[in-house]
Design a binder for these strands. Structure first.
Lengths: 337, 337
DNA sequence: CAATTTACTGTAACCGCTTACAGTTATATT
DNA sequence: AATATAACTGTAAGCGGTTACAGTAAATTG
């Protein structure tokens, strides 16, 4: 590969001039610029990024830690991130941490050693430990799809409100016995999706004067099968729910199939509501009524935010809540009883 | 951030010794090693990857170009890649090229400038132009999920045979009128999924003495909606197919819903067969009978292959065909007519 | 026309690491 | 005890860029 020296020699100028040309410095004469460009062209020269990174202490790379890229939700977020990074000439280093603390910290360490300019972090729960690591090492980070009480930039949705709205919608349809399939709860003290959504569910019931029945509250792990099993359980109760709110679309699909396999039908006997609005939620049978999260947008906004931070620009709102909305399809119908 | 100089000073040794310790060189006394380790610990020192890359001309990074990470198929492949890269301490730079030639070449150029050690490439069709670029720049590359006539390492499946098997299975079930929804065909001359699968489809019909009817051959673009429309078209024909083979699961979901929305039922009136076996194919209603591609495995094998190449190891089989298999679920039933 | 000013240009130090090569000790050998 | 050998260790020259600073030539000014 041709180096800056080769170009300088061929163009008959110093390496400083070559460097200036490639950095669009105004301090180069048009004549020199042309000579350099011609020589570079001839040699197929492009500046070496590692060398440049070392000299400038900037890698133009953003580290991206997600739980699992094979989950359609994260894949969509990542797509949003990559698209805006690409526009701004940033590159992305992808890491799958499976929500394991150890892997997360390992990756953070590694990204740090690689001098990434910043990190976009996506985990189920942002702990004090996380906060400290980023703080101590002075790593620029933005949380995607997650909110936190710590002083860290984030972009996400209001999970409490989203769940509240979803359940409210079900109630407005006339449902009185509404079950929920939530995710792992952790220690219940922190701001994590599952906890907030469960709170939203309960609050909606309370505000509408409906009772909270523990038999209608089941935990699963965001996988299809676990939700299927949870729904099956729920449908074994003597008094059955008329609606089930699953806090992810994939879990909702599990619930729908559980309904069918329990000899009932959806939405006639049991309405099922999802969460996320992944691509395939319109492809299920019945198609899913769900709470739409702007996944692509979450990624895109997070990336834009981080890049602004890296440029030293001021960001007015560095903790952003994006709008969710209810997407009505065919898995929920109204009820009289 | 502490540098190697800081550590050397604190430990009272030269930077060469520090470097040796961190490279596990045997040329260091135990005493020196301890001093260095202690100093490094104290300063929180870890070698700078960019500096190391520059000195060693090795970045420990693999470039990854896929059409679109938000497609569950690619997401799964990428997950396989990342997992094995992680084991071997490689990092991944993710690029979404949307199957656009221009973007692909742009990304290749960029990855080259970043001195990635190698590239795992995933596109719909590997052209001579691609071949030349990789060849000329002497870029180590392995194709994932794609085969080619060119002398390039790859790991994929036998798409012709897979489609042949799928259609054969349908025929064995008694189907005689079988439609196909394939993907974009390009110029029809090259080895791309759609072409190979379409060929497999036709060959299976021919080998079983069944006629090829153009009305049963529809093109779509791998999106849910396009397949839905294609299937709708197909079902408008006077003589309707009793089975539809869609060459991706997502398209199969489109087909299933088109069947329903045409007032027919699946699988009773029309069987639908998919391709890929993505996670959600067991979650549809009816669950999908499909051709399973080992997506994770394709990624993992490709990564392992590339890393071996980077280590200068010999690879016995550098063009690998992985096994597909038919996964029988509920979307296809036998037919008498 | 000399003195400034302007507009470039080149030299060299530096970014943080690796590694060839040349020491320098300590140990073994005779 | 002198020498050869082994076992480390340090110096310095890269890797391929950026950039402060000094230098030079051309343009402007008085």
């Amino acid at each position: 590969m041709a180096t800056i020296d080769d170009v300088a020699k061929l163009a008959g100028v110093s390496i400083a001039t070559v460097s200036r040309v490639f950095n669009n410095s105004p301090l180069v004469s048009e004549k020199a610029r042309q000579k350099v460009l011609k020589a570079a062209e001839e040699l197929g020269y492009k500046p070496s990024m590692p060398a440049r990174s070392l000299a400038m202490k900037k890698t133009n790379t953003i580290g991206l830690i997600v739980p699992d890229i094979s989950n359609p939700y994260y894949a969509e977020v990542v797509r949003g991130i990559e698209d805006v990074c690409n526009i701004y000439k940033y590159n992305i280093t992808l890491c799958n941490a499976d929500n394991k603390r150890e892997k997360e910290f390992q990756y953070i360490e590694m990204l740090k050693n690689r001098w990434v300019d910043g990190i976009i972090f996506h985990c189920d729960y942002f702990s004090e430990e996380h906060y400290k690591v980023f703080k101590n090492d002075n790593i620029k980070v933005v949380l995607a799809g997650r909110t936190t009480k710590f002083d860290v930039p984030y972009v996400g949705i209001d999970n409490f409100k989203a769940a509240y709205d979803a359940v409210n919608y079900l109630i407005s349809l006339g449902h009185k016995r509404i079950g929920i399939i939530h995710g792992p709860l952790g220690d219940m003290k922190e701001t994590i999706d599952s906890v907030d959504r469960l709170r939203g569910y309960k609050q909606a019931l309370i505000d509408n004067g409906l009772p909270i029945y523990e038999g209608f509250i089941k935990e699963a792990n965001f996988k299809y099968k676990s939700a299927y099993n949870a729904a099956k359980e729920m449908l074994k109760e003597k008094i059955k729910p008329t609606a089930i709110f699953a806090i992810s679309d994939i879990m909702a699909m599990g619930a729908i199939n559980a309904v069918f396999d329990s000899g009932l039908s959806c939405p006639e006997d049991v309405s099922v509501m999802g969460f996320d609005n992944i691509d395939l939620s319109e492809a299920t049978r019945p198609s899913l009524t769900t709470v739409s999260q702007p996944m692509y947008e979450i990624g895109a906004v997070a990336a834009r935010m981080l890049i602004k931070m890296l440029n030293g620009e001021n960001i007015d709102e560095y903790q952003t809540i994006l709008e969710h909305k209810i997407v009505v399809r065919n898995s929920c119908i109204s009820r009289k009883d």
